[in-house]
Structures are given as structure tokens and as C-alpha cells.
Computed example of a mutant assay.
Amino acid sequence: MVVLATKLYVEGDARERSLDSLRSLVNNEIGDLEVEFDLGVRHDDFPSVTIEGDDATVARNVLREEFGEIVPDLEAGETYIGTLDSWDEDGIVLDAGQPVRIPADELGLGPGSPTQIRERYGLVQHLPMQFVYGGGGVADAEGDEDKDEDEPSRLADEERDRLYEWTRGDGRLNVNSATRAEVRATLNRAGHAQDYVTIERLGLLEQSVICTENTDPPGLLASVGQYLPAELRCVVP
């Protein structure tokens, strides 16, 4: 079984659509292999994929590479993926199957509080993010760090590079609580088919609309925000 490092947190009809979307994504990745798979969702909203067949080992590795994996135990110095759970003036908390606090001075994303950094980089809640586990910095249920461990966790260099790259382009509109197909349909329905280059999938329900050179991300947010029951954040170069 592989527990994918992306969350399925919507309810009702949206949950069924999201499950169908995830099933299609998984099938696209491993459908040509000699395997059968069963898709489920854990109590903490992380999807699990149970795989059987001759190519099961290969299929599990493919899914780990594509989505990242939530593992039961974290080892110091290793890189993992967690989803953005909460933030305050002291840092952010990622959900990696257990809450992991990253202190503000370990974000490595320039000046400002975690809240200001979240605004600057368009970090929507539940965004999958890479981090290096420090051996300490595990948060309790309230998000408070365990003070018995000295070594904090930090954002991975690859994650910092990715976020810095976002600020060097033509602007982005980041969205959560919607599949890529739902975001595309909303943009097109609202008359913005010519205002974006592509929609980058960040997670199952987290997308990044890459704007054209002449598109103003805050203007795009104002135009489509009423149609998307989601959190939307702009990245303005």
C-alpha cells in the first residue's frame, strides 16, 4: 500500500468527483503495468492505494515519485512531503501523517512573518510541500513544538527553489479545494481562456494557474473568485 502525499478534504458530490479524478490520475500512471489497484481514503484524508500484481513494486515506486508518500516514521535528515496545515507568527505546521512544525527562521523564503510569506508566495492551505525532517520539531495536536528536541525541521532546498521560481514568472493564481478540470472549466466559463498559459497540478485539489504576460493575477482572482468555493492566493512577480 502507498499513502499518497496529497489530501482529499472536500465533501459531498465534490468528494466523489475528486475520487474519480484521483482514480484517473493513478490509472494514467500505472494502468499499463500488470497490476490491479484499490483506492481508499484514510481517516486523516490522505488517499491510500493498495496494489496487487506482477508489477506491484514498480507501480508503488511510480506513485511515490509522482505524488510523494506519507510514511509512518520520519528519520532525521531525510526529505519528505507534508501538506500545509496551519501557520502562525512562529512558523508553519505541515501534516506528514503527523504534525511537523517548521519554525519561521527555517523557512528560508526571505523576510517577513509566516503569514506575510504565505501571502507573497500564494501558499494555499493543504499545499503539498517538501521538508527536511530534523529529528525534532514535531508539533503536538495544538501545533506547539516539542521542546525536548533541539534540531528543527526546515523547508527542503528544492521547495525553496520552486517557490522562488514562482515569483520570477508572469504571475500565478493558486487555488485549493478544486481539481484541475474544475479550475479549467471555471476559467473558461468566466471568459478567461486566453488569460492563462496552463494549470499546473500541485496536488489533487491544489492547482496553480500560470498567467499570461498581460494578465493581472489579482484581477483574475477578483473575476473568478465568486465561482470557486476555494481559497485563492496570488503570486505577483
Score class of each variant (00 low, 15 high):
30 I>N: 01
24 S>N: 12
120 R>M: 10
59 A>D: 11
47 P>I: 06
51 I>C: 05
185 A>E: 15
224 V>G: 05
34 E>H: 03
209 V>H: 04
217 P>E: 03
189 R>E: 15
177 S>Y: 14
219 G>E: 11
200 E>T: 15
144 D>F: 11
204 L>R: 02
101 R>P: 02
39 L>C: 07
113 S>M: 06
72 P>V: 02
113 S>K: 12
173 L>G: 09
163 L>N: 09
90 D>R: 12
138 V>P: 01
61 N>H: 12
204 L>A: 07
235 V>F: 09
77 G>W: 03
97 G>W: 12
17 R>I: 01
36 E>A: 09
109 L>C: 11
61 N>S: 15
52 E>N: 11
41 V>K: 06
216 D>G: 00
48 S>N: 12
2 V>P: 11
98 Q>K: 14
172 R>D: 07
168 R>L: 15
180 R>C: 08
81 I>N: 02
146 D>A: 06
42 R>A: 13
100 V>Y: 06
81 I>A: 01
99 P>Q: 11
230 A>I: 07
34 E>C: 01
195 D>Q: 14
41 V>L: 09
226 Q>M: 03
28 N>V: 00
227 Y>G: 01
193 A>Q: 13
208 S>F: 02
109 L>Q: 08
112 G>C: 04
144 D>T: 11
152 P>K: 09
100 V>S: 08
74 L>D: 10
57 T>N: 12
163 L>W: 10
118 R>M: 14
123 L>Y: 04
82 G>E: 00
34 E>N: 13
80 Y>F: 12
228 L>P: 07
194 Q>M: 09
233 R>V: 01
56 A>V: 01
67 F>W: 08
237 P>D: 07
202 L>N: 09
73 D>V: 15
174 N>D: 08
147 K>L: 12
133 Y>S: 06
14 A>G: 01
144 D>I: 05
230 A>E: 02
157 D>Q: 13
109 L>D: 08
158 E>K: 07
155 L>I: 03
3 V>G: 00
121 Y>C: 02
11 E>D: 14
208 S>R: 02
155 L>H: 03
176 N>M: 08
9 Y>I: 02
74 L>F: 11
17 R>W: 06
175 V>M: 08
102 I>Y: 04
231 E>I: 04
135 G>T: 03
146 D>H: 04
113 S>I: 03
37 F>C: 01
144 D>L: 12
124 V>W: 02
61 N>E: 15
209 V>M: 06
66 E>G: 00
180 R>N: 14
216 D>M: 00
102 I>R: 04
33 L>K: 10
61 N>T: 13
142 E>S: 13
31 G>W: 03
192 H>S: 06
213 E>C: 01
214 N>A: 09
112 G>W: 07
214 N>C: 00
82 G>R: 00
82 G>N: 00
162 R>K: 13
13 D>Q: 14
31 G>E: 03
23 R>P: 00
179 T>M: 11
27 N>W: 10
169 G>V: 05
229 P>E: 14
195 D>H: 13
156 A>D: 14
161 D>K: 13
202 L>A: 12
57 T>E: 15
92 I>Y: 07
163 L>Q: 07
194 Q>F: 05
